[in-house]
Amino acid sequence: MWLSHLAIYVIACQLGLLSLLVVWTFLRRLRRYVTRRNNIDRTREFRDLIHHYVQAQSGRMRAALVVGLKAQLQSRSERGFFRRLILEALKETGGVGDDHELLVSLYRLLLLDREDLLELQSPLWWKRLAASLRLEALESDDFITTYERLLQDPHESVALSAMRALSRLQRGEKIQKVLEVLARRAPQRLDIYLEVLTRLGQHRGEELLQLLESCYDPEVASVIIYTLGEIRFDPSFEKLVMLTKSSSDTVVARSVEALAKLGRREALPIFHDLLHHPSEEVRVKVLEGMSRWGEMPSQGVLVHLSGEDSIDVRRAIFDLLNRGALQE
């Protein structure tokens, strides 16, 4: 009997829970309809205001609009909603021009940038990331120190976003900062560091070369070497040739890669020698470099390398032979 009573009690609970879930679901739907209708109206209204601000003939008109907006954007959700619309408008400007400047000034007059800066203090990384990405959209030099601080962020995505923001500002002198970060923490996504550094180092080859001279960390050195190759910095040739004798396999491989990109055939004898290098990574890079130049190793070396277990070496030989065949 007690089992039946228990069962009835359980059924009652289940029915109650089920009813709650059904009601909750339909209430969510109702709320969605109402919010969507409101959002459509608000989007139209706010977009008009942004448009008026950008098109206003005088500073006084703009100031009046800002005052009105400040009064209107009281709640957090309203401000967030408006912020999203400004960021959308900023995206359309492509980061340049008077419209961009005006939109950035509006963003800052409404103190939205301060909110972002505050959010960067959040213990939650996704909030810091979102704030960093928003500030990046402003493309303003005023946040350089903020980005530099964010380079030390414990979360990789946040640090990377700061690097990207820095690289977008084209401030070459920040190369050292990025390298410092690299030296301090193992790069989880090396490709991003490389891309950032390449962008920053576009006209800073000399500076990178100096950094390479004073660098003792093979990880960081190989990133600099890669960047020198990417920006095709010809004066680095001698240094790169020297580094092919490095004790670090990674440094040798990167140097070979960079030399191949520089495209100076004087490096070919070194490449032929390096085909016997003990590191598989180096041999692959040498073969790729030779493939780039259409240069073939000797028959004996080719036969020897073809017998290797390494799939990467065999693939590189295949590409080399294939390219040679195509050229013939």
Binding site: A7, I11, Q14, L18
Partner: peptide
């Protein structure tokens, strides 16, 4: 009763 519990559980 147990069949109803089983079915309702799946429904929940």
């Amino acid at each position: 009763l147990f069949f109803i519990i089983d079915v309702l559980f799946g429904a929940v």
